[in-house]
């Protein structure tokens, strides 16, 4: 390596040998790449949903009447609370209290499990009413968006569990970051699909 190269790359070490600023955020930078990608996808889906609604406002309005807003609202509360527990888990690991951190992580994923149960009840009611993935554009998008989100909850529970087994600071922060992303996506999905009409 020439002296010039060493100089140039040395001088910019702070800037580019890093992750372009992502390393300043809690958790592993690659998790932030994932979070950003996820937000783009869910954002695109929500905008697609709004766009499809413009094409068929009546159909969307009729179908939306059959959604369970109460279940959606309760699920928002569940995820918000679960997210709070994830923050507690980080605080605990920051103060070196591994046991407590594990406890909060388990409680956070328990919140995820409750979310999934409520989601299943919701889906069950739809299936019982004869509504499926192919019933209408509204329900295709409803099932796709909430289904994708529910899969992320499942994945998130898995991540929190893995992190609870190896609760280093970076691990807990990374796992919690994913969990908060799942939380945040739901906070946007709920008004757009359930409330706006």
């Amino acid at each position: 390596m020439t002296a010039q190269t060493q100089l140039s790359s040395g001088a910019e070490d702070n800037d580019t040998a890093s992750w372009g600023g992502l390393e300043l955020l809690p958790g592993h930078p690659i998790m932030w790449v994932l979070i950003l990608s996820e937000l783009v996808v869910f954002g695109a889906f929500l905008l697609t949903f709004s766009g499809a609604r413009v094409v068929d406002p009546q159909g969307f309005a009729q179908d939306q009447m059959q959604l369970d807003r109460l279940a959606g609202g309760i699920n928002t509360l569940v995820l918000l609370t679960s997210g709070l527990f994830a923050v507690f888990a980080i605080q605990a690991v920051n103060t070196g209290n591994i046991c407590r951190s594990r406890l909060w992580l388990v409680l956070a994923s328990l919140g995820g499990a409750i979310f999934l149960i409520i989601k299943m009840i919701e889906y069950r009611a739809k299936f019982d009413a004869g509504i499926g993935l192919e019933s209408s554009t509204f329900f295709t998008l409803y099932f796709l968006i909430t289904g994708f989100h529910a899969l992320h909850v499942v994945l998130g529970i898995g991540i929190l569990m893995v992190v609870a087994i190896w609760p280093s600071r970076i691990n807990v922060e990374t796992g919690a970051a994913f969990w908060h992303m799942v939380d945040m996506v739901w906070v946007l999905v709920f008004p757009v699909i359930y409330l706006v009409r």
Partner: peptide
């Protein structure tokens, strides 16, 4: 959530 749970503080800059 972004600011306080995820910790996307001023340090994140343009992100």
């Amino acid at each position: 959530i972004l600011r306080y749970y995820l910790g996307l503080g001023p340090a994140a800059g343009s992100w």
